[in-house]
Design a protein around this nucleic acid. Structure first.
Lengths: 342, 342
DNA sequence: AATTTCAAGTTAAACGCTTAACCTGGAATG
DNA sequence: CATTCCAGGTTAAGCGTTTAACTTGAAATT
């Protein structure tokens, strides 16, 4: 029924091996023969069958994409964007991406995603933190691994990270430039690397400006960075401090909670307090005022991960194994010049 | 290196055929032998290699997911949710789904997605409207097709649709129950089936309530349903009508534009005018007031599409070929009782 | 002129699985 | 008791590629 490499071979009057060699640009074939084969391929509209290629060459042409279920459900748009980035770059490099979630509690006895068991991926991209048991099991399969927005302590894997430190620094710098001096930081659990780094950026900016760091101006012990926790953090923060003029929230989700709290208290943003977030999510634009934030180029995270993977395949991992994607300041309406005399 | 069906056969002291038959639950194998084989499979931790299976059985274990690039970029969260739904259900049914976008202008001479050329999918799910040229080409390959949120005129393909008519009806009914009588409709191009259907629901609800349909209360000629067009539609609508008490927007994107316009004009929502949207997108919650809307269960669209596909594969397409997913009224703060005496 | 080298293919095995067709020995049947 | 039937397997031929190893004829070398 469908046209196979054999049909092409017959038509071009060569062996199937020759056809295969032409397809793979092997130099052993004369340009005359090459042309004849290519013509036959064209005319028959031949395309190698993926399964057959896979079986013979022991490569699937697929990349796996793993994210934990709760990361995914908690901030789905974020990981979705990353996934779309991998999808986009994979297309350029002639791969497909198989998406799957795993339990964040992946244990010693859980079984790996089907695509690894069935040898249906040539490499795996892991987005966000995953269980160490998963990694241990994965390592046993010797599949190339690339990490996004997380890196396990041990192992020397290629990784694509957000430049959180510099991002935090820029965010606070923006506030400093607007003449703010009493700047608060609101974060989720400081043990999370990304949050910690943003916090470090915050401190660095203050230090550089010669402003002392005041622990009371920070809330860094909320369980995880979601709206409700942002609301509560704002509440806790403002009960102790009445003279804050700006808040740097570790991410937009919390910032939205903060904003809600401030509004309910009749505190004007940015009139009374300026607010800046981090991530740049869809909702930011619908807010009133629209949220100033540090944009994370999520798609780029995915793109770079696939690029690293392809380099890995080609054994030419000459470029750095760690790629930092910068965050970008997006000024909207939740930050403004501060005039008050303190 | 890796364990193959042969290893299992040796260990269980049977032929490889027997192992294969056990794996596929063939009844020809005695339970005694079956157990022995299964034990060997367990102990060796054997999993059939996907490529080999594919080659031998002429099935890839993959489903293709196609959406046009501009649909995708215009309302990415919408299609992403659908995709995630297919992904979810595919997992249950042991498939993977390969995502790709095609140009909305796909022409006669464009080439099909790589996964169909390489016989790397067993069926294709098409989300949203696609070019007829694409369909023509696809049909030549005799691949099972399932549509989501769109159905081509010709052909009798399985399809999963949003119940837009009933959704529109419910939306307007909600407004009627709140004592509104002057209810406007704002839509994008009425030629788009979904929008037309929502409009039909609007008219049906009015009719049932014995309220005459007034063309001046509708705007149905904006190019496509996005924020900016919602803003403009609201402007046009209110210039002609001062006594509107409620607006049904054909989707949330336009509703957000409407809301912005009303706010700028100092018109209170829902105090002066109630507003209801359609889709239920992420941004709705960040709005002030939070938007009342008709929730579309996007994930379910994807889930049902995969189910239909699997039924197709099993030739037991007994259930209806057209599945309607109901929309659900989500009451938030943009609609309220109307008191004005008209 | 004999030998070596090389360019340009070809041969054939292998990849790991599925499945139609075949086999075999005992139970059921006439 | 000879024949049929069937449960429970096995054999072997594919599926469509890739690729290591081999071939061959002509050019280059000695």
């Amino acid at each position: 029924m469908a046209v196979t490499i054999k049909d092409v071979a017959v038509k071009a009057d060569v062996s199937v091996a020759t056809v295969s060699l032409v397809i793979h640009n092997n130099q052993r074939i004369s340009s005359e023969t090459r042309r004849r084969v290519q013509k036959a391929i064209q005319e028959l509209n031949y395309h190698p069958t993926r399964s057959a290629r896979g079986l013979a060459s022991k490569s699937s042409g697929n990349l796996g994409f793993i994210v934990t279920d709760d990361h995914f459900s908690r901030s789905e748009p974020f990981y979705t964007q990353i996934f779309l980035g991998t999808e986009f770059q994979a297309r350029q490099d002639e791969y497909y991406v198989l998406l799957t979630t795993v339990s964040s509690e992946f244990g010693r006895s859980d079984s790996l995603p089907r695509f690894v068991l069935e040898k249906n991926v040539d490499g795996i991209i892991l987005a966000g933190k995953v269980s160490s048991h998963l990694l241990t099991k994965l390592e046993a399969y010797h599949i190339p691994l690339v990490f996004i927005d997380y890196h396990p302590g041990q192992g020397n894997y290629p990784v694509v990270l957000i430049d959180n430190i510099s991002g935090g620094f820029q965010a606070v710098n923006h506030l400093l430039n607007l003449n703010h001096r009493r700047i608060a930081f609101i974060g989720g659990d400081i043990d999370h690397p990304s949050i910690l780094e943003r916090f470090q950026g915050y401190r660095m900016a203050l230090e550089k400006a010669g402003i002392p760091f005041i622990p009371d101006l920070t809330v860094v012990d909320e369980p995880y960075p979601a709206r409700a926790n942002g609301y509560r953090a704002a509440e806790r923060l403002l009960q102790k401090n009445s003279d804050i003029t700006a808040i740097f929230s570790c991410n937009d989700a919390m910032a939205i909670g903060v904003l809600q709290y401030l509004k309910e208290r009749g505190i004007n943003v940015p009139g009374d307090i300026s607010l800046i977030g981090f991530d740049d999510v869809e909702a930011d634009l619908s807010l009133d005022p629209a949220l100033t934030t540090m944009r994370v180029h999520k798609v780029d995270l995915g793109i770079e991960a696939v690029r690293l993977m392809v380099e890995l395949f080609q054994n030419k991992m000459t470029s750095p194994r760690k790629i930092l994607i910068p965050a970008e300041l997006i000024v909207r309406n939740s930050t403004s010049l501060q005039f008050r005399v303190l």
